[in-house]
C-alpha cells in the first residue's frame, strides 16, 4: 500500500434542498474515500434518502456541488454516473422480467459492452447468491431475493461508488449476514455509502458514521469513536441517542431564544 491517503470517490459540498417552502436538507457536506464504508445514520425522515438521491443524480440539489471520482455530477452527469451504483429504498425491479434479462439490461444500461455482459453478470450473481435463480421471473421471488437482485443491479458494473439505501430491510437474519459480508467485501475494492437506522449494522459494517437529523449532519467520526463518545465507552445505541437528544435540546434552546 502507498502511504498517500486513498483517493476521494465522492465529495459533496454544502448540499441544500427544499421541497416547496420546507427546507429538507441543510448544508450537507460529505466525503468518501476508496476502500471505505460510510454509514448514514438517522431517524426516519431525517433526510437520508433525499441525500442519497442527490448523490446519485436522481434529484438535483438547490445549491452545492457533488463530485464523483473527480467528475462534477451536475455538469457532466453522464460521465459521473458511469462510476455509480445505486440501490434505492424500493429496489427498482421490472417485475415481469427474468433475473438474467433484468441484470443484462442493468449492465448494458451502465455501459458494459455486449461481449463483457456475461462475465459481469456471472460475477454479480455469484456475489449476491443468485446463481440458481437466473431464469426465474422477478415477481415470483421472495422479498429477500428481490432485495438481492436490487443489490446485484447496483454492483453489476463494478462501480467505484456504491450507494445503498437501507440494503438489509426486510431480510431474514441469515440473509442479513450474507448481505453484510457482501457489503464488507465491496467496501474493500470500492467505496460504499449505506443508510440505515440499525445500529448493529453500523457497528459491524461501517468504518465511519455520519449521523443525520432534520436534514443536517450533526456528528461524523469513525465507528470506534462513536462507540467511545464522550470518553465513556458505552453501547453505540446509547451514544447515538445521546447525540441526537443533545442536538434536539440545542435546537429547542435556539428556537426559544429566537422567539424572544
Amino acid at each position: 500500500m502507498s502511504d498517500t491517503a486513498p483517493e476521494i470517490t465522492i465529495s459533496a459540498r454544502k448540499l441544500t434542498r427544499r421541497f416547496g417552502n420546507q427546507k429538507i436538507i441543510h448544508d450537507v457536506s460529505l466525503t468518501l474515500r476508496r476502500g471505505e464504508v460510510l454509514g448514514l445514520l438517522g431517524h426516519n425522515g431525517a433526510g437520508k434518502s433525499t441525500t442519497m438521491q442527490m448523490l446519485t443524480g436522481c434529484l438535483l440539489p438547490d445549491s452545492g456541488d457533488i463530485e464523483v471520482c473527480g467528475i462534477d455530477l451536475l455538469r457532466q452527469p453522464i460521465l459521473a454516473k458511469m462510476h455509480l451504483g445505486y440501490l434505492p429504498e424500493t429496489p427498482p425491479l421490472y417485475r415481469e422480467l427474468r433475473v438474467d434479462d433484468y441484470l443484462t439490461f442493468a449492465a448494458r444500461l451502465r455501459g458494459i459492452k455486449n461481449g463483457k455482459v456475461a462475465a459481469a453478470l456471472a460475477q454479480a450473481k455469484q456475489r449476491c447468491g443468485l446463481e440458481a435463480i437466473g431464469g426465474k421471473i422477478i415477481a415470483t421471488l421472495s422479498k429477500g431475493y428481490q432485495q438481492r437482485v436490487g443489490i446485484a443491479q447496483a454492483i453489476v458494473h463494478n462501480p467505484e461508488v456504491i450507494v445503498l439505501d437501507e440494503p438489509t430491510v426486510g431480510l431474514d437474519p441469515a440473509q442479513i449476514r450474507d448481505i453484510r459480508s457482501l457489503i464488507r467485501e465491496l467496501g474493500d475494492s470500492s467505496s460504499v455509502i449505506l443508510s440505515t437506522h440499525l445500529l448493529g449494522e453500523v457497528e459491524s459494517l461501517c468504518d465511519r458514521v455520519e449521523i443525520m437529523q432534520k436534514g443536517r449532519l450533526i456528528y461524523g467520526d469513525t465507528t470506534a469513536a462513536l462507540a467511545n463518545y464522550g470518553g465513556e465507552p458505552g453501547r453505540l445505541e446509547e451514544n447515538f441517542i445521546r447525540i441526537t437528544e443533545r442536538e434536539t435540546a440545542a435546537n429547542a434552546a435556539t428556537s426559544a431564544g429566537d422567539g424572544k
Binding site: Q53, T56, G57, C58, P77, I78, L79, A80, K81, M82, L84, Y86, P88, E89, T90, P92, L93, Y94, R95, A106, L109, R110, G111, Q153
Partner: peptide, 14 residues
C-alpha cells in the same frame, strides 16, 4: 408507480 425510475435516472444516460 413501481419506483423503477431511479434505475434509469441514476444510469449514465440523458
Amino acid at each position: 408507480r413501481n419506483q423503477t425510475l431511479p434505475l434509469l435516472l441514476s444510469a449514465p444516460l440523458s
